[in-house]
Design a protein around this nucleic acid. Structure first.
Lengths: 203, 203
DNA sequence: TTCAATTTTAATCAAATGATTAAAAAATAT
DNA sequence: ATATTTTTTAATCATTTGATTAAAATTGAA
């Protein structure tokens, strides 16, 4: 049926436009008219397909978050890769992802801060704690006679990967002058972060 | 003159209310009525003392940012402290600061992302690069025959300190269950982060 | 084709919101 | 004390913005 195809297409156009506008401006600053214009659609269609700005946001937000999380899941639950390989892959995968979707990290952090309600149950509390990576971390720490909680190293990895991107405007203001410098720095970190993480894990 | 005293007091009340509301909700979601109510003042006073919501935001934002930066400046430019001592102090100072003003980091990151215009000239490009800490870092790296840019280690330090706080809602969702656990984790990091930084600097 | 259902549009609504105004109140100076 | 200036208030404005509606256009079925 052409109907279904068109449905999906129109809905999807609005959703994509919403994703773009919400992600770059945040919920409050995004106007439904911005989204309609971005999608090249009549404003009323937004309320026809999605009930309200809130509903649309929840859908986009949930999809963004699940996309972000599923990347982690795939990498951290792979029983075929070593701990070192996981660290390498995680670093490169997330640097790639953030370069492709630079507004996503700050958007997710903001949305989670102000909108934790509708996400209840969407995220699995054990996604980190029950992962294969966590088991490998625990084994590694035990081998090195360290009593530090493995979660710290997961936090460190994500911190070193993500933070420089969300702090990019500050970095540009206080330490860098050209965009190319920033990108160069982040590409250096692809190799450096894994080395650092492995070092603090074992030294 | 009583006039000056009262001026400052009223202005300051509005500014404090604005700081609170802007910092917790962000610029777009903050309504001038929220700020007036928070300050216990008539809405019109906001436009009487400050010309507009934007102007008020710029003032609050600038003050927040300078407060944040001046903390760094004091610590990083102290020629009397060793590099290790600087790392210790920086870590503890910023963990203290963020526990006291938990909304500030995300607020600053957001504001810098969307509003870089009015800040031009307010931040010194060389605040990081010309600091005593940077000299000490360079010396330390040279001593250890490392060719990594010292800026990486500054980024790592701030990443490991600040990121877990801005990612707190995500952490609570995927790995922790009680606020106390989070605080415990962050307090463990007071000692851990300096050890990690010193390790990757020298190993 | 013809009819019914679905989708799209233009116009409009109602509430929210930043801002202004004119008058009242308070403070200060003479 | 009186007059002048400054500060505060209540009421109101104008615009923005999320949402609705009724009609038009399009699509699919009979």
């Amino acid at each position: 049926m052409a109907k279904q195809i068109k449905d999906l297409s129109t809905e999807e156009k609005i959703k994509e436009a919403a994703r773009k506008v919400f992600t770059s401006k945040g919920f409050a600053a995004a106007r439904t008219r911005d989204i309609a214009e971005e999608a090249g659609m009549n404003l009323a269609l937004l309320n026809y397909y999605f009930r309200s700005k809130e509903k649309l946001f929840e859908i986009v937000m949930t999809e963004n978050l699940l996309h972000f999380i599923s990347g982690i899941q795939t990498l951290l639950y792979d029983t075929a890769t070593s701990i070192d390989e996981k660290i390498d892959r995680l670093t490169n995968y997330y640097i790639d992802q953030i370069i492709e979707y630079p507004d996503l990290p700050l958007f997710i952090l903001n949305a989670l801060k102000s909108n934790a309600k509708f996400l209840k149950g969407k995220l699995n509390k054990n996604i980190m704690l029950k992962s294969h990576f966590m088991l490998q971390l625990q084994a590694e720490l035990k081998k090195n006679k360290k009593t530090i909680k493995p979660l710290h190293f997961i936090i460190n990895t994500f911190s070193m990967i993500i933070f420089p991107f969300v702090a990019r405007p500050l970095l540009m203001e206080v330490a860098l002058s050209k965009d190319a410098e920033f990108i160069e720095l982040m590409n250096e970190r692809r190799k450096l972060i894994p080395v650092w993480i492995k070092t603090i894990l074992r030294s």
